[in-house]
């Protein structure tokens, strides 16, 4: 099963490589990875999506917790949560397909954020499934380039991941 693990990490040089190194050392798998500083400058928040059965996920969270630079973590998929990813897609936009791209973007509530005579750059946010569907819808028109941020997430309601 797919899990989204969010980690508060010391914002120190080398901390990220310990997390990433752990996954390769222990033969765990990373599907997406997303990391940025938080409102508290000494902490980064890192979100990783991974796939594994309960035993593997238990080992992943235990080993992550063992890293000295990991301050706190939560498996978001254990409860209700919001999951978002941002994607920028460059698509061919020539002739009739210019309108088609615009229409499809509207259906997906995506925005065109850059325009040239032959190319549209579309920005879309949503869960991974929605982004996959958009890529599929655009594929026949001609995708030139895709940039995805990887999943970020947060628990619904009062639950917090903070110090």
């Amino acid at each position: 099963m797919r899990h989204i693990i969010s980690i508060l990490l010391e914002n120190e040089p080398g901390a990220l490589s310990r997390v990433v190194g752990l996954f390769s050392q222990r033969n765990f798998n990373i599907e997406t990875l997303n990391v940025a500083p938080t409102e508290e400058p000494s902490l980064s928040r890192l979100t990783v999506t991974t796939v594994g059965d309960d035993r593997v996920i238990e080992q992943i969270t235990k080993h992550l917790n063992k890293l000295i630079d990991v301050v706190k973590l939560v498996d978001l998929t254990e409860g209700n949560h919001i999951e978002r990813e941002l994607m920028l897609v460059k698509v061919k936009a020539l002739g009739a397909s210019r309108d088609e791209v615009k229409r499809t973007a509207d259906i997906f509530r995506a925005q065109i954020v850059d325009v040239t005579p032959s190319v549209y750059t579309v920005q879309i946010t949503g869960d991974a499934g929605k982004l996959d569907a958009f890529v599929q819808a655009m594929a026949p028109i001609g995708i030139l380039e895709v940039a995805r941020t990887g999943v970020s997430g947060i628990a619904r309601g009062d639950k917090l991941l903070s110090l």
Binding site: P13, G14, S17, R18, G21, Q25, I68
Partner: peptide, 14 residues
């Protein structure tokens, strides 16, 4: 050496 030893230390400092 911090990189080389990363998988075989409890922790490391620079």
């Amino acid at each position: 050496i911090v990189g080389v030893t990363r998988p075989i230390v409890k922790h490391s400092f620079s």
